[in-house]
């Protein structure tokens, strides 16, 4: 998994490429922990996300909780596979997907 991030003022854009699973989720979690302070808009680009496990969902949920307090979080370019996971797990109800 690779992470491309771009901080533009209070807007943080994060693009996740590859697999977000048990082994790679801590990497994204650390990335959020280090950069999320003062961010008012977090945009996650999942265009090239191939796989998402429950560990990855946990990190997304944690980010959503933080952003609920300090702004908004938007997930964009969600493909069918990932969208199905969001639907099955009910995440679709709490996430803002564009």
């Amino acid at each position: 998994m690779t992470i491309e991030k771009n901080l533009n003022g209070a807007e943080l854009n994060v693009k996740v490429i590859g697999r977000l699973d048990t082994t790679t989720a801590p990497q994204l979690e650390a990335e959020f922990k280090g950069n999320i302070n003062g961010v008012e808009k977090l945009v996650l680009d999942f265009a090239e996300l191939e796989y998402l496990s429950s560990a990855g969902l946990r990190v997304i949920l944690a980010a959503q909780k933080v952003m609920n307090k300090q702004g908004e979080m938007i997930i964009k370019n969600v493909n069918d596979t990932i969208n199905e996971i969001f639907e099955v797990t009910g995440f679709i109800d709490i996430l803002t997907i564009e």
């Binding site: 909780k65 797990t89 709490i94």
Partner: peptide
């Protein structure tokens, strides 16, 4: 239509 996971968020 599935509900949200348990323990994920209060008030669901």
């Amino acid at each position: 239509r599935a509900g949200f996971v348990l323990a994920g968020m209060e008030g669901v």
